[in-house]
């Protein structure tokens, strides 16, 4: 496991928050992504209810909350993956790089090239490991040394040592945890600014999950990481900021991770974190 001292289950009230002392305080970081008065609807159903939050750059921000609370929906509004869903409707602003990504002149495809995404279930393409990592470079018409970038990305995803001799075998031959790290390598290869992770460890065993957690910690040196997780301990261990969504798509509390886990403002949040509800 990563650098946490607590192995307690969620039932215990004390979940140790690790404030990631190796990075400067959060309030010194600039803003990478900001949502303003964001409302998202699926048909008549409201999935995000008037959310306003600023996500610091080069930090790990965790989104936690019970199932159906809208945290994954929020993640997908950032790179406009919700556009793929016919009945989804977005109101309000999501600013990325000082620009509202829902402006009419924003090309969602171009936007997604600046924002990497890692999904809940590892989804490597049925191609070789090298081609998987090089995929983003290929579709973006990358003109430099592809193999060097592939190596760099695989090292960045802590996978290089395990696969350097089998770059041309299929990505599907890897284990689940390796596949997920391959997906991370794929996401960072085109050098995005933000990486979105939608429950990246929920389909993995604890050992593989802890490797990914260590990796996320390292990724925050260079990238803004926004991670949705069901695992409260994971959020406490790896994130600098934590946003708690509760049912109805409401952002209930958003603060430094240590504050959320040690002394939340709201009783509802404390109940959720200590497992009394959700």
């Amino acid at each position: 496991m990563s650098n946490t001292t607590s192995d307690d289950s969620l039932i215990t009230t004390e979940v140790q928050a690790d404030s990631n002392d190796d990075r400067a305080p959060v309030n010194e970081a600039g803003t990478a992504v900001a949502a303003r008065d964001l409302n998202v609807y699926y048909g008549d159903e409201q999935a995000i209810n008037d959310v306003t939050m600023e996500i610091p750059e080069k930090r790990v921000t965790a989104l936690i909350g019970p199932s159906g609370c809208g945290k994954s929906t929020f993640l997908r509004t950032i790179n406009r993956m919700n556009d793929m869903i016919d009945i989804c409707r977005v109101e309000g602003d999501v600013e990325f790089g000082g620009k509202n990504v829902y402006d009419a002149d924003v090309d969602p495809v171009a936007l997604r090239r600046k924002i990497g995404m890692v999904f809940q279930k590892p989804n490597p393409f049925p191609k070789s490991i090298r081609d998987n990592v090089a995929y983003g470079l290929k579709i973006q018409g990358f003109d430099g040394d592809v193999d060097a970038r592939v190596e760099e990305s695989l090292k960045g995803a802590a996978l290089w040592d395990e696969v350097k001799d089998q770059l041309h075998s299929s990505g599907l031959e890897l284990s689940g945890g390796q596949q997920q790290r391959l997906c991370i390598a794929r996401a960072i290869a085109p050098d995005p600014e933000v990486i979105l992770m939608d429950e990246p460890t929920s389909a993995l065993d604890p050992v593989a999950a802890s490797k990914i957690e260590d990796l996320i910690d390292d990724l925050a040196e260079e990238y803004t990481v926004i991670i949705v997780t069901h695992n409260m301990q994971q959020a406490a261990r790896i994130s600098d900021r934590t946003a708690v969504f509760l049912t109805g798509g409401e952002l209930v509390e958003y603060d430094d991770t240590a504050k959320i886990f040690e002394d939340p403002e709201q009783q509802r949040v404390e109940d959720y974190i200590t497992g009394k509800f959700g």
């Binding site: 495809v109 995404m117 579709i139």
Partner: peptide, 22 residues
């Protein structure tokens, strides 16, 4: 699987690129 399409879309592939490559 739709997973593969979404994976490609999220990389910033156009629909044609997703269709052709994945």
């Amino acid at each position: 699987p739709d997973d593969l399409r979404r994976g490609s879309d999220a990389m910033g592939a156009t629909r044609w690129q997703t269709t052709k490559n994945v």
